[in-house]
């Protein structure tokens, strides 16, 4: 399996990452090496095998519907890079 430049660009876009041309080429070639190494997984027959997502099979625990553990707004927003009127501020989303 090897990955084309256009595919690499699409993946980078989905991951919200950007690279200059040289770095992109370097990553792409490493990527291809890794993928070809990974391709040996395809040798294993896995028909009817249930994918294992978590090592143990417990059922989802459920929480009581109770309001608690809220953080006061000041502590919450202290970590934020940009705040206005106690709201998170980001560059314009539309337009």
């Amino acid at each position: 399996m090897s990955i084309k430049k256009s595919e690499f660009d699409k993946v980078a876009h989905l991951a919200a990452l950007e690279f200059d041309e040289d770095r992109a080429l370097e990553y792409q070639s490493q990527f291809n090496k890794i993928l070809s190494y990974f391709d040996k997984l395809k040798e294993i027959k896995t028909d009817n095998v249930e994918p294992l997502v978590t090592p143990h099979g417990i059922a989802s625990p459920l929480r009581k519907d109770k309001v608690e553990n809220q953080i006061d707004r000041e502590s919450l927003l202290e970590s934020a890079p940009d705040v206005k009127d106690s709201l998170y501020k980001v560059p314009p989303v539309v337009g």
């Binding site: 595919e7 699409k10 990527f31 990974f38 997984l41 395809k42 294993i44 249930e50």
Partner: peptide
């Protein structure tokens, strides 16, 4: 970190999900 994010994004992306993520999760079961 960027290398692994790219690798993971690729493994989950449409068209490759079954081939990579799901196949890996199945082999994991085995």
């Amino acid at each position: 970190v960027k290398r692994r994010i790219l690798l993971g994004t690729y493994s989950l992306s449409s068209g490759y999900y079954d081939e990579y993520y799901i196949q890996a999760a199945r082999v994991r079961r085995l």
